[in-house]
Design a protein around this nucleic acid. Structure first.
Length: 204
DNA sequence: CATGGGATTGACT
DNA sequence: GTCAATCCCATGC
């Protein structure tokens, strides 16, 4: 896998969010192709960086090409790629992957038995990484990966493979936020079963 | 120092 | 559709 360097991320965050579709995320031998992203920028209130530089947002304002991993709802770790020049708070949230490598390990980490005593059925392959909290769990990505280099750290993102050079990308409104809901900064692969719900409606 | 909300998920009604 | 789990940290007193 050919890892993407800082220059790839040192650009407008919307551009990076669109171009990360089809790229590959890898961690500890498990990997998947990005099929859904969302862009966040300090200029709009849904972005953590909107409040300015704090201990929490330090990574967001740091070097492009680093991972920004934070805890959501006290439960899930969410993976972002820091974008734009140092000093600008912006990142792309990785929301869903199509699993490629290490499916067995993903199934184990995503199985009910691997989670606090809950019972339930095993997830299907299309449910392994179909959400931002799911994919970090499937790949074993935790808060310790925050600020890691996406080109040389434990979590890496590689350029599009041959089969993913020209993905059919749909745009839509971002999910699960309460502010700046009008911005259509969500990007998904059309018709891909690994995209999280709700899927964006084509042609809106 | 206390409080409250959040870029979610899965189980249950 | 409803709801709890669970924790970091911003905010306000």
């Amino acid at each position: 896998m050919k890892a993407l360097g800082p220059d790839f991320y040192d650009r407008p965050v919307l551009e990076v969010a669109r171009e990360l579709i089809g790229c590959t995320v890898e961690h500890r031998g498990a990997a998947g192709v990005i099929v859904e992203t969302e862009a966040y920028h300090e200029s709009e209130p849904a972005c953590h960086a909107f409040v300015g530089l704090t201990p929490r947002t330090r990574t967001l304002f740091g070097l492009p090409g680093r991972a920004y991993v934070y805890r959501s709802y006290g439960v899930h770790a969410l993976l972002n790629a820091v974008c734009e020049p140092e000093g600008v708070g912006a990142a792309v949230l990785i929301r869903a992957l199509e699993p490629v490598t290490g499916l067995d390990a993903m199934r184990v980490r995503r199985s009910p038995a691997a989670r606090r005593g809950r019972i339930g059925r095993a997830p299907g392959d299309h449910e392994l990484c179909s959400g931002p909290g799911k994919l970090t769990q499937a790949l074993g990505i935790s808060l310790g990966e925050n600020e890691g280099d996406l080109a040389s750290g434990s979590v890496r993102i590689g350029a599009r493979a041959a089969a993913w050079l020209e993905p059919n990308v749909l745009e839509g409104a971002r999910i699960g936020i309460t502010r700046a809901v009008d911005l259509r900064w969500r990007f998904c692969v059309a018709g891909n079963p690994h995209v999280s719900r709700p899927r964006p409606v084509p042609g809106r």
